[in-house]
Design a protein around this nucleic acid. Structure first.
Lengths: 329, 329
DNA sequence: CTCGTCCGCTCCAGATGATTA
DNA sequence: CTAATCATCTGGAGCGGACGA
């Protein structure tokens, strides 16, 4: 375990002052010989500038954080990759932290000088969260729906996504369409329900076949799917996300129901497992990649001093796969 | 955006010295009235101790990092949760960072005082990585197989896992068993191949049906699975992990092959998607949760000054599901 | 190119006052 | 009343590096 050698040690070894060593390493004005001597000394000693010391002096950390409620959700993983590439280009380090569903404390801690800014996934919009984001000492971009002055947010257009999905199912001949939703006190749960109801009404359908699971996960979706199917087999089921739709697919298989022969099935998010399931799952791409990219750019601009630009949305895109196309007999 | 008020401001507002304010907040010796006044002042000002300053002085950051090659892999997500609970109990923050496959630079940066320690997933063991881990200024625990003095590592016993799987498949009547492996210059790829070959030999079977994909992902596995199946349909296929096995399942479906009727299929890792697929996937639980827990505890002890304890392994456990049980006609 | 002051905080040594023998 | 004891409190040094003079 190497001792973290200091800049002073490097300077001493190179026979120059600390300040010169600093400039020689950070690309300031210095003579060629100084630069060379200092760099060799730094190399010999395995010198690494102390992150804390540098940050304390400069007020910058060179890193941003992404705060997510569930690291296992493939959507967040995809967003991470998109963020990573944006942020890498600026030489900024991206950290991910898993935080509770209402990340008030986590957002408050952002003011402690840990990062230069953060991207926070907010499922439940509360006054406390909005306030925490507003008073944070560093810029925060919210992934989710927050319509509040002075706050940057990037959201998916779930309503439009639902509209696409219902229209597609109706076109495929479905009349009795059910929704397996997540908690409706969350933004995604709420807007997906609203979008579903609105879309059904537009198509002259009832929207009473709704089951609400405790969470947007496989585990929570399975019993809910069982309950839904126990009330009769609808023409089609929409899962509030792919994980929930795939849990429903699994329940259908257990009950001996064939998709898409006996009923149609679709999800939202268009994550990788949707492509891989048998049958593959029709889904709506809510633009996770684009949302992440936009959030990253917004954050980077905010860090450079730009003003908040409010709420931004990304348009959805329908991806039709086997689970809604009755090619099999 | 609130200005980060300093301890000096709190002290001034409470009418005490900076040192007293520090002690009042950090539970040192202080009179009841001082504590109360300082805490109120801190509350009024929304004071948050500056992370950099504290870290610079104390030499501690109160956080550890987990470095993974692929945030989308459910195994790492599961490990994250396990780590999180271990680490939370000690009031330590867990950060996750996605790093390149050979995370030498990332490990070297750990010496910059960013974290108090790290858990690093190492797929390819190279001299450079081993050296970087050894000279790091903070304790590092490797998730993977590293048999080197002075280095802590926690690994899965893939060989034993393969043995369980092959024995199970043979018992189910398979003779021609194929392996869809990941890159064999990685530890998992290598040990899974070795384990597979050894197990086949023990059962008097040939082990020539091996296909190697470029990566342990869905995307890389699909063409490899296609190639494997193109060379004839074996009795059973083992995927080097669940993602690869599920990609194979998808290819089987596309080719009209029914699992487990036409061939058996199994994976390793026992991730959630294995439970959810149709048919559900037989897999070997390589103890991701336990490995993470052990790694966390080892790291925390190292941070408290304990000596490295070398390599530790976790025993695998076979989980039989539909993909290897021919109940369906 | 060097010196010196500072970023915000923790800790050490010493000061101050109250309490007690 | 003096001296010793104890509980608090204060000033100042310095963690490692950046930056203006």
């Amino acid at each position: 375990m190497a001792e973290g050698s200091t800049l002073a040690a490097v300077a001493a070894r190179a026979g120059v002052s600390i300040a010169s060593a600093s400039r020689a390493l950070n690309g300031g004005i210095a003579s060629t010989s100084t630069i060379e001597r200092v760099q060799r000394a730094a190399g010999d000693l395995g010198y690494r500038p102390n992150h804390m010391a540098r940050g304390l002096q400069s007020g910058r950390t060179g890193q941003v954080a992404m705060l997510v409620p569930d690291a296992a959700n493939p959507v967040y993983a995809r967003m991470m990759s998109a963020l990573q590439s944006e942020v890498d280009a600026h030489g900024i380090r991206l950290l991910m932290q898993q935080v509770p569903a209402e990340p008030v404390a986590a957002v408050e801690e952002l003011s402690a000088g840990l990062v230069d800014g953060a991207i926070v996934v907010v499922l439940r919009v509360t006054d406390r969260i909005v306030e925490a984001v507003r008073v944070a000492a560093v810029p925060v971009v919210v992934l989710g729906l927050v319509e509040a002055a002075g706050i940057d947010s990037v959201r998916a257009d779930s309503r439009a996504g639902m509209e696409l999905l219902v229209a597609h199912l109706v076109e495929r001949g479905a009349r009795r369409i059910a929704l397996l939703d997540g908690p409706i006190d969350t933004t995604p749960g709420r807007t997906r329900l609203d979008g579903f109801v609105a879309a059904c009404e537009r198509h002259g359908l009832g929207a009473d076949l709704v089951e609400v699971a405790d969470d947007f996960t496989h585990a929570a979706a399975r019993p809910a799917a069982r309950a839904l199917l126990g009330r009769g087999v609808p023409d089609a089921i929409v899962g509030a996300n792919d994980a929930m739709a795939l849990a429903t697919l699994r329940e259908c298989a257990t009950l001996g129901l064939r998709v898409p022969h006996d009923l149609l099935l679709a999800g939202l998010d268009d994550t990788e497992p949707a492509e891989l399931s048998v049958p593959s799952l029709t889904s709506v791409d809510l633009g996770a990649h684009d949302r992440a990219r936009i959030a990253a750019r917004t954050l980077l601009r905010r860090i450079e001093g730009a003003e908040p630009r409010g709420s931004q949305a990304v348009a959805p895109r329908l991806v039709v796969r086997e689970s809604t196309t009755k090619e099999h007999p």
